[in-house]
Computed example of a mutant assay.
Amino acid sequence: MDEGLTSRHLVEPTDGSAGPLLRIAEDRLMPGAGYGAHHHADVDVVAVVLSGSLAHGWGGRATLRAGDVGILRAGTGLVHDEVAGADGAHVLQTYLRTAAAGQEPGHRLVRWSAVADRGWVDLGRPDARLWVARVQAEDTVAVPAGLRVVATRDEVWAAPAATTGEGRVSGPAMVCVWQLDRARPLWAVD
């Protein structure tokens, strides 16, 4: 990892109690800093760019900007890198255990749309759903139940999954809500 990278783990269940969720990290990268070329296998990495930009290097080069979601399916294995743009990057990186072993690696980018300021992101897997919203200043939005990660100008925090109903978040903020199949996966240890 580069010296210009700071990472803070927000959620890291080690017992399988959050289904496929392995970790949610808040990463801040200085301009030009990256993770260094590294290997992944049998994991999906979902990156939500909160601010700045992040160039993803594997199978071509895609640049993610604020609000964009990158879905990396490592499958049978790959080596990749991510490097912050000239404005740095503030990113939520969520690691999910693969839903199906032996898949071919792939990367997909879901672009931010100024027309739709909130909605579900298709992750292509049955056991995890992601809802993302950009809440403007002076606005409040209803958010679905689930594991909530809220990024404001000053802080990023995660709240436990609500079991029923919706909650409300006031802006300015970026909100990610994870709905996870909480059935104990085969890899969980008693």
Rank of each mutant, 00 (worst) to 15 (best):
E3D: 10
G4V: 00
D15N: 15
A18H: 13
G19V: 04
I24W: 04
L29K: 02
G32H: 12
G34F: 01
A41R: 09
V45C: 13
V46C: 06
V46A: 04
V49N: 06
G52Y: 05
S53Q: 06
A55L: 09
R65L: 07
R73P: 08
G77N: 14
L78H: 12
H80Y: 05
V83H: 03
A84E: 15
R97H: 15
T98M: 06
A99V: 05
A101H: 09
G102E: 11
G102K: 03
Q103R: 10
P105Q: 02
G106L: 05
G106P: 11
A114K: 14
V115D: 12
L123Y: 12
G124N: 05
R125N: 04
D127R: 06
A128V: 15
L130Y: 00
V132E: 04
R134Y: 06
V135L: 03
Q136A: 15
A137R: 00
D139S: 14
T140G: 14
V141P: 11
L147Q: 08
R148N: 00
E155Y: 01
A158D: 06
A161P: 05
A162S: 14
A162L: 09
E166Y: 00
E166V: 01
G167I: 03
V169H: 01
V177A: 11
V177L: 09
Q179A: 05
P185V: 00
L186M: 04
W187K: 07
V189T: 15
